[in-house]
């Protein structure tokens, strides 16, 4: 178990060396410029537009990890057989999975932190340029909480990537499965709500109803982690929601890691 941290570190380093940080820094510079300039085009809600742009960029930056880095680092590990380098060292497969997850979490964290700093800089610049009355209602805490939840959402997606990579050998398939998870995760709640609505009306097959329910429980409800709107309007957060979200994220991640380890342990690495 004490090998988890070294694996995390090596994953983190390998991820960073792929010029990720340069990319993210350039992107965050662009973000600052873009956010400051474009919000000037709007008349009233300058702050809202800025927060929208910045938080969306943070989410996008975070999503780079599951979609590009994670699959590269995990499926690539098996495809290029670099995994032998790690597993030859008396490292159990569960430590491998946990270490990889931790490494990916660190990568996600650093990217989000850089973009967060860029966001704060952008907002600071905007206060210098635009009239002060735009920023009267501005508070930092919704911004932070929403970013934290976005981070948790990306971690949930990361954990599903781990599961997909441990059940399939092909990185293409893993990408496809991750993309599907992402899309389902963002629409499942709306679809289930729509289906439940129909239930009270005319007959709808109980099969579909059950499927919809099952999908809600099986796939991660990623849309729930999206609190950008609340942050953009500086709305107060419901503490119950935040607690539920935190617990949900953590338990869902544990389930995914459990399953990933379960499958990964039973699998050949030819």
């Amino acid at each position: 178990m004490n090998s988890i941290l070294p694996i995390a570190v090596i994953t983190f380093k390998e991820g960073l060396r792929r010029r990720v940080l340069y990319g993210v820094m350039v992107a965050s510079l662009l973000l600052i410029l873009f956010a400051v300039l474009i919000s000037g085009l709007f008349m009233r809600d300058i702050l809202k537009v800025m927060v929208d742009i910045c938080l969306s960029s943070i989410s996008l930056g975070g999503l780079l990890v599951p979609f590009f880095l994670a699959i590269n680092l995990l499926a690539g590990d098996i495809e290029n057989r670099t995994i032998y380098t790690l597993l030859a060292r008396n490292i159990s497969r569960s430590s491998y999975i946990l270490g990889k997850f931790l490494g990916l979490a660190m990568l996600t964290g650093i990217i989000i932190i850089i973009l967060m700093i860029a966001t704060l800089v952008a907002i600071y610049c905007a206060t210098l340029i635009y009239p002060a009355h735009n920023f009267l209602h501005f508070t930092l805490s919704p911004l932070f909480i929403s970013t934290l939840m976005a981070f948790l959402g990306v971690l949930v997606l990361n954990s599903t990537v781990l599961l997909w990579c441990s059940v399939t050998t092909s990185s293409f398939l893993a990408t496809l499965l991750t993309l599907s998870t992402y899309i389902i995760g963002h629409s499942v709640e709306d679809v289930v709500r729509f289906m439940n609505l129909k239930n009270t009306g005319v007959e709808i097959s109980p099969m579909i109803q059950a499927t919809a329910k099952a999908v809600l429980y099986i796939f991660p409800n990623l849309a729930a982690f999206d609190l950008k709107q609340q942050a953009a309007y500086s709305l107060p957060f419901v503490s119950q929601e935040i607690t539920l979200l935190g617990l949900y994220g953590l338990s869902y991640i544990s389930i995914m890691l459990f399953l990933a380890i379960f499958f990964f342990k039973r699998r050949d690495l030819p």
Partner: peptide, 18 residues
Amino acid sequence: GACVLSSYCASGLYQLHN
């Protein structure tokens, strides 16, 4: 335990959003 907790939270969030 994790499954139960996650289902509980999933339905809790669904209700809350409702």
